[in-house]
Computed example of a mutant assay.
Amino acid sequence: MTYEGVLTKMQTEFENPIQYYLIFENNFLNINQLLNKEIEITFLGYQCLNCGKKKKIYRQGCCYDCFYSSASVGDWIMKPELSTAHLGIQDRDLAYEEKVQLQPHIVYLALSSEVKVGVTRKTQVPTRWIDQGATEALAVVEVPNRYLAGITEVALKNHYADKTNWRKMLQNEVEQVDLIQERLKLENLIPAEVQEYFYLQKNDVYVMEYPVLQYPKKINSLNLENTTNFKGKLMGIKGQYLIFENGTVFNIRNYEGYVVKIEV
């Protein structure tokens, strides 16, 4: 079978194990069904996810122009503490920013390598945790806007990592930590204006199981622009990565906006 289209991050279903899907314009592919099978990936070109033009991808699935103009990739995406919609202040498009920023957000602890702190919209639970390859995660606070989540994350960054060690995540080198006990330490660390939103529910840990037959001992990242045609046996899927038998890993998220052909 041949599948062709523009890569976007894999869609997921929270099952045991996690189910992964690549969605193309005219069809879709359940990646779990390809485990232990040879697949071939060929790079064909680019298509900006924002404007749809066949322009070289710069970052986050966008061409250079869209990356610096589209409201969906403003600085507040990566740095929630820069959110200003709650003040009625526009960054690029206030209507878009109000829609995204002025909704419930979760600050969480997750285990994908060591304990990390992060922010996500409530509607993205547990998708966000699956996308980063977390084996466990739980909410610390639920707040009504992105700004409050951002300042909470900034306060907790002094005590926890805010990025996943992707190599350890892919090699399944995950610290064993009781997240509920960890959360109990946080009450005095979060900002005063967020104290009222502190979560103390007892058994709300999400546990994620990934479809991985074999974790790699050594890791080699597939770069589609250097290796425009790759063939390998799929041994696992974790986070937004495909893991192949020879230790090659392919980060789908990094290649959003790339047009590919996949043969299975």
Results as ranks from 00 to 15, higher is better:
Gly118Arg: 00
Leu35Met: 09
Tyr68Glu: 05
Tyr108Phe: 10
Ile18Phe: 02
Asn229Leu: 14
Lys168Tyr: 10
Ile89Met: 14
Val264Ala: 12
Gly232Ile: 05
Thr164Trp: 04
Phe67His: 09
Gly52Cys: 04
Gly61Trp: 03
Lys231Met: 08
Met78Ser: 15
Leu22Ser: 00
Asn188His: 11
Val141Ala: 10
Glu38Met: 09
Ser69Phe: 00
Lys79Glu: 13
Val125Arg: 08
Phe14Gly: 00
Val260Ser: 07
Leu29Ser: 05
Leu109Pro: 02
Pro211Tyr: 03
Leu102Asn: 09
Trp76His: 01
Leu242Trp: 06
His86Ala: 06
Leu242His: 03
Asn50His: 13
Ala155Thr: 08
Asn172Met: 11
Leu234Gln: 10
Asn26Arg: 07
Ser83Leu: 01
Leu111Phe: 03
His105Glu: 05
Val125Met: 11
Asn32Gln: 10
Ala149Ser: 07
Asn165Phe: 13
Leu102Pro: 00
Phe198Ile: 11
Leu186Met: 14
Gln47His: 11
Leu44Gln: 08
Ala134Thr: 14
Glu153Thr: 05
Lys185Glu: 10
Leu7Gln: 08
Ala134Ser: 15
Lys122Pro: 11
His159Phe: 15
Val154Ile: 09
Glu13Asp: 10
Gly236Pro: 01
Ala71Tyr: 01
Asn251Leu: 13
Val140Thr: 14
Thr248Ile: 12
Leu200Lys: 14
Gln47Ser: 12
Leu213Asp: 14
Leu94Ser: 01
Leu102Val: 05
Leu242Phe: 11
Thr248Arg: 06
Pro126Phe: 10
Lys261Pro: 02
Asn27Arg: 07
Lys163Ser: 07
Lys99Arg: 10
Val73Thr: 08
Val249Asn: 00
Glu97Cys: 03
Leu213Met: 13
Arg146Met: 13
Thr120Asp: 10
Asn26Phe: 05
Tyr206Asp: 13
Tyr58Ile: 08
Tyr210Val: 00
Glu196Met: 12
Ile23Val: 14
Lys54Glu: 13
Asn16Ile: 04
Met169Val: 05
Thr228Met: 15
Ile262His: 07
Ala192Gly: 03
Lys202Asp: 15
Thr123Ile: 12
Tyr258Phe: 15
Asn26Thr: 08
Lys233Thr: 15
Asn30Pro: 08
Tyr160Val: 00
Pro126Glu: 12
Ile41Trp: 06
Leu109His: 10
